[in-house]
Design a protein around this nucleic acid. Sequence first.
DNA 1: TATACGATCACCT
DNA 2: GGTGATCGTATAC
Length: 206
Amino acid sequence: MSRLGREFFARDTLTVARELLGQRLVRVIEGQRLSGRIVETEAYIGEEDAACHASVGRTPRTKVMYGPPGQAYVYFIYGMHHCLNVVTEREGFPAAVLIRAIEPEEGLEVMRANRPGRPNVELTNGPAKLCQALRIDRRLNGVDLCTSDELFLEGAETVSEAHIVATPRVGVRGDEAALNAPWRFYMPSRPEEPGQGAFCAPLRGG
DNA sequence: TATACGATCACCT
DNA sequence: GGTGATCGTATAC
């Protein structure tokens, strides 16, 4: 299985956000692989994007987004949740892709243990949920996904444009441009086997 | 030093 | 569909 390298992330953020759909997010804990296919992403692009954390400029919190592509930007929000982003574009330009949902593949039992009492479909169908299921927190902020042994991405599947839906981003504030930009991407579920297929859409939206 | 609020989730009705 | 949890950030004083 081939790991996604620097050149994958060093591109236009919207391209990376679309092409991350279908790829495999891998978390290794004590030698065990937890993984899943990415099924929903959002792009956050530059200081001019009012919804992007970097719209306030370079701060201790946002500095990772200004760094080289391929790093993990993990932030803490609402006093209890973590979200995982992948830094994109050239070093010095702040941009990233938020991983909003994955469909579990390996390590399902561990994910269940990390989110006790939740049905399978709710293990990783949200940005904070997948971080809880995969035990991702700020200790992984700034980790290089191109070289890390505990968090990385594997090339798995190419999803054609025809199978991708774009909508405005979830829960963002800001100006009209930020509210209207169709920078959320996901794969619609297959009607013949909702929630059962190799891929499924997020429950919300769409 | 103090304050307001957020790229969410879970639980309630 | 409404709301409380809970604390790191940014910003204002």
